[in-house]
Simulated assay, not measured.
Amino acid sequence: MSDQLQASVDGVTVNAEKILAWIQEWTEANNLKVPSDLNQTFAEAGFDSMHSVELAFFLEERLRIKIDETVLFDYPTFASLAEHLVSLIRPAGAAGSQNGAPVSGSAGGAGNW
């Protein structure tokens, strides 16, 4: 995953894997189903609108950025949300991947999902 998006928050390297680990931590703490497929939607994993808002607030605290409460509807899979959040915290000069190609599926092998 050498082309994976990453940034730094308070000196900690944050990439899609780190965000997915935080999501997994929150999901388990809230007795929700942790998916085996990162392209599974939050709805398929049993998230409702309240879970979506609570997870957005949890991730705001971890990432120290404002996250819209509807982000799980805009980025409905675990992988797409993680990649989107990393892109929000990347330094301004590092926007986009090489050759302007989107980095899709880079979180596909993250963690033990």
Rank of each mutant, 00 (worst) to 15 (best):
T70P: 06
A43S: 12
E44S: 08
E44F: 06
V34W: 09
A16N: 13
Q40S: 14
F73I: 11
I89L: 10
A95N: 08
N31T: 10
A101G: 06
G46A: 04
Q98K: 15
D37Y: 11
G109W: 01
A107C: 04
S52Q: 13
A92H: 12
V86P: 06
N112V: 06
E28H: 06
E61M: 03
V103R: 15
G11K: 02
T70K: 15
V53L: 12
D10Q: 13
D48L: 01
L32G: 06
G105K: 12
H51C: 14
S36A: 15
R90N: 00
A94R: 02
Q4T: 09
N39K: 14
W26R: 10
Q40V: 03
V86W: 02
S8C: 04
E54F: 06
D68V: 06
Q4S: 14
S80L: 12
S87A: 13
P35W: 01
A79T: 06
P76A: 09
D37E: 13
A7V: 08
G93W: 02
S106E: 11
G105F: 05
G93I: 05
Q24Y: 08
R62C: 05
N31L: 12
D37M: 10
L32Y: 01
I23W: 03
T41H: 09
A21R: 12
D74H: 15
F42I: 07
F73C: 04
V34K: 07
L88D: 07
K33M: 14
V53W: 03
A21V: 04
